[in-house]
Write a protein that binds this DNA or RNA. Sequence first.
DNA 1: CTGGTCTCCTGATCGC
DNA 2: TGCGATCAGGAGACCA
Length: 286
Amino acid sequence: MPELPEVECIRRALEGLLVGRTLSLDHIARQDIVGSLSNPRGQRRGPVKPIADEQLLHRSVVDRVLRKGKQLAIGSLCDRWLIVRLGMSGQLLTGSAASERCDHVHARWTIGGGASLAFRDARRFGSLIPCPSLSELEAHWQRLGPDALSIDPMDLLDRLRSRKLAVKAGLLNQQIVAGVGNIYADESLFRARIHPRTVCTSFRHEHAVRLAESLREVLASAIEHGGSTLRDYCSPSGITGSFRLVHQVYGREGQCCLICGAKLSGARVGGRATVWCPTCQGRRIK
DNA sequence: CTGGTCTCCTGATCGC
DNA sequence: TGCGATCAGGAGACCA
């Protein structure tokens, strides 16, 4: 379940491994994981259109690796881009991690004639999206909200306050703020001492300040720890992240709050399993 | 337009 | 030990 910190760790690793190297597409095992800008999830039913190898960076020299929210984009010198969305279980693997795993590998490249790069995704919620230029990429990413790592409190307030939904659901909406998934939504709300069911319309400036700051702290800390590994996530070289060890609420329903000792509550909010501290995160917004 | 629910997909886990 | 049921979750589809 890669969220912003995990994707940022992958981006940094890929940047070091790929920039200046030429990719050669070895094979695509499943065409249906390839999407388009107008249909990001790909052709999941019906006949699949074949994709030109060049659109998947075949014989392209990698120039940059960018990220916005949970999306990655690998850019080539000739301004061809490949957006990678990892979904639930997607991985980009390199080196021995790439060559050792064969199951669920949907696409594979060779890096500069040597090492291997593999896109692996057991649950197939992820996709690869060819993009013809940086300007098209920027237009596509414009539809996402600001990146959660650097969102401005006033911007966050503006985006949330018009919505009549639980703040937890708001954080999970990538058009409001990009990069937050279930883990970091719960963690940042806990740190900001805001109840996940707080209706966004009741937000005031101070709450947005607290939430934006908590998002930044939680996400930056997770990046430093190499991300959270629950099941599938690992870095391109196959290393798992350690942030799970410092989760304060996620996955801890029924256990004691690490701040006040109260028993952590759990319920579904915004359609997702949610955990919070009934004492630290009061029902009424403070 | 908005917000809630359904759906896709497979591996891990649980109860029997 | 084996097996079916259940759950997890990103995000588009769909509906009231």
